[in-house]
């Protein structure tokens, strides 16, 4: 169980804590979905959240994106306690979420999808009175951010349905990157994709980290997690069983902690947590 080559450094990007949750509890009737879970996302990192089905992954993420309100516990953004009433609150505070099922309007073009729900209007009379869209400005901004993410697409004016599945999900990921001020949460973004397309999306997530935006990645796919994550948050029975580094732990270690076959104390090096 012990790592082959323990490293001194726990994570590649030790930074300040951006998003923190303390002792979150959520009951659904007699079912306890979250049993006092803690969570911590640091600046500039990709934090993977893994766990078996029913371990509380989804409930944790829903609490962090405002989709559910926990029964008790605190959520802190940049050290400030926050209370979400709904997903829009989270978005207003700069937390963007990417969902598994390609949340794009396929018949609309790429630029329209990037700005969907956040369209910009032209300045002056045309925008204020006639409510006219600034199509050129949005297109230019979309092209700029796509270039910055090194995400190569056909014309920004082509319909999303003309893209491959990976490129479509890329549009959803890029949308999060474009608008997330604090962090982006990706809920199984590659679950519906093939191997090559998954690679495209993972590249994009790395590019987002490079821009300094921390990312929470929920995934079932261990090889992907080990390929991309800086730290791995392991859920078990509604709690955080451990946070480990992919550099100090193997996939077998993580699976063992996930399933309860190993306790964190046995498997971890102290620096990792």
């Amino acid at each position: 169980m012990a790592p082959v080559e323990p490293r001194v450094q726990a994570a590649t990007t030790p930074g300040g804590v951006i998003l923190e949750a303390r002792n979150l509890v959520k009951h659904y009737g007699h079912v306890t979905a979250l049993d006092g879970v803690d969570f911590e996302l640091r600046s500039g990192e990709i934090l993977a959240v893994v766990g078996d089905n029913g371990a509380g992954k989804s409930s944790l993420i829903k609490a962090l994106t405002g989709a559910i309100v926990p029964d008790s516990g605190d959520i802190l953004l940049d050290g400030q306690p926050i209370h979400f009433k709904g997903p829009l609150d989270a978005r207003k505070l700069g937390i963007e979420t990417v969902y598994q099922d390609l949340a794009v309007a396929a018949a609309l073009d790429i630029a329209s999808n990037l700005f969907l729900g956040r369209e910009r209007r032209r300045p002056g009379f045309l925008g204020d009175v006639l409510r006219m869209l600034d199509k050129k400005g949005m297109r230019a901004e979309a092209e700029r951010s796509m270039a910055e993410l090194k995400f190569h697409l056909p014309s920004i004016g082509s319909a999303v349905e003309s893209l491959s599945g990976g490129q479509r999900q890329g549009v959803a990921v890029a949308r999060a990157a474009l608008f997330a001020k604090k962090l982006a949460i990706m809920d199984e973004p590659t679950a519906a994709l093939g191997v090559r397309e998954t690679g495209q999306v993972l590249d994009l997530i790395r590019a987002i980290r490079q821009r300094g935006l921390p990312v929470v990645l929920i995934s079932h796919n261990m090889p992907n997690v080990f390929e991309i994550a800086d730290r791995i948050h392991i859920m078990r029975l509604g709690r955080r069983a451990a946070v480990v580094s992919p550099k100090t732990h193997t996939m077998a270690d993580v699976v063992a902690i996930m399933t309860g076959a190993a306790k964190f104390e046995e498997a971890a090096s102290p620096q990792a947590g």
Binding site: P87, A103, A105, L116
Partner: peptide, 10 residues
């Protein structure tokens, strides 16, 4: 085109 996506983007 996609009411669910529309809802998700607010």
């Amino acid at each position: 085109n996609n009411p669910e996506a529309a809802r998700l983007v607010g």
